[in-house]
């Protein structure tokens, strides 16, 4: 089993949803013409830009609206001759509540199939970040079937908490998709320090669990904050297969293969070990987990 994936390092125009969707349509056409991938991943907040503050109220849309909009662009770009899976980061409005979300949709059939929506769990609200003030948080990590691999999605800070990729892997995800918008910080060495941190986080997540990690990073400057991009695909043995450059738009492509997952897990059966040990760890009564309607400490 294998899949061709393209992570698009995208620079949106701030607040211009239609223009950004049209640009996504152009990218669809380019990708479809050259070598059509099975999965195209766009970064967090791709349709609006990331730092919106109160403007999220004007710019949040439903996942279905975006699935329909993407379907129209994919069909216009390809004539609808083939299907493709697309992941898109956006600000979601659902029943009056706003989330920082990503959707996973299969396009190209009679109607778009919205397979999953992940709402960001960990909303950075410190320093330059203020998400907790403007959007609500998600409550679970879903693992869902796709055209190829069972997958999960995490958004940006979600993956900084190692428990998130762990839960995704234990629930059966073989691919964890991470759309992100990371403003770079750190100038002490030849590489941006936050980029180095990302690389280490994503390699650990992939290598510990024998999963693929597909990371798509936003680029461009918003009010002086420069998003770093450096989209990458990390193999199940923790090796970076391919990585994009900082700050510039580009497409990062790789082939995901189930054999690589099998080989990595045979060499380092950590996920199987975790399946066995995890129940004991979670039964520890000193953990602050809900038991019988209350959180124990």
């Amino acid at each position: 089993m294998h899949a061709s994936v393209a992570a698009v390092q995208f620079q949106p125009r701030k607040g211009e949803i239609e223009a950004n969707l049209d640009r996504i349509g152009e990218i669809f056409a380019d990708l479809a013409r050259e070598d059509p991938p099975d999965l195209i991943v766009f970064p967090e907040a791709s349709t609006t830009g990331y730092f919106l503050e109160g403007a999220v109220h004007e710019l949040a849309r439903s996942a279905q609206e975006y699935a329909d909009a993407l379907q129209r662009r994919w069909k216009a770009a390809t004539g609808g001759a083939r299907e493709v899976d697309v992941v898109l980061g956006f600000y979601e409005r659902d029943a009056g509540t706003i989330y920082n979300a990503v959707l996973y949709a299969t396009l190209g059939g009679a109607a778009p199939r919205l397979r999953h929506v992940h709402r960001k769990l960990f909303l950075p609200t410190y320093g330059v970040f203020d998400e907790g003030r403007f959007v609500a948080r998600g409550r679970r990590i879903g693992v869902f079937e796709t055209t190829v691999f069972p997958s999960a999605m995490l958004i940006c800070e979600d993956v900084w908490h190692s428990i998130c990729p762990t839960i995704a892997a234990v629930k059966g995800a073989q691919v964890v998709i991470v759309p992100s918008a990371s403003p770079g910080r750190g100038i002490a060495g030849p590489e941006i320090e936050t980029v180095q941190r990302w690389r280490s986080l994503l390699r650990n997540a992939a290598g510990e669990h024998g999963i693929y990690v597909v990371y798509a990073g936003l680029v461009g400057f918003e009010g002086g904050k420069g998003f770093t991009g450096t989209s990458m695909v990390v193999a199940p043995d923790g090796r970076i297969v391919v990585e994009g450059q900082p700050f510039e738009e580009c497409v990062v492509r790789a082939r995901l293969d189930s054999d690589a997952i099998d080989v990595a897990r045979a060499g380092l059966p950590f996920l199987g070990d975790l399946d066995s040990v995890l129940p004991d760890l979670l039964l520890d009564e000193e953990l602050p987990l809900p038991r019988g309607g209350r959180v124990t400490r």
């Binding site: 100038i187 002490a188 030849p190 941006i192 400057f221 700050f247």
Partner: peptide
């Protein structure tokens, strides 16, 4: 105060052009 000037040069030129 450590700084990699080549990184900062590239970063700030992108900043100026982009903004």
């Amino acid at each position: 105060l450590a700084i990699d000037p080549a990184l900062v040069e590239h970063w700030l030129e992108r900043f100026i052009a982009d903004e």
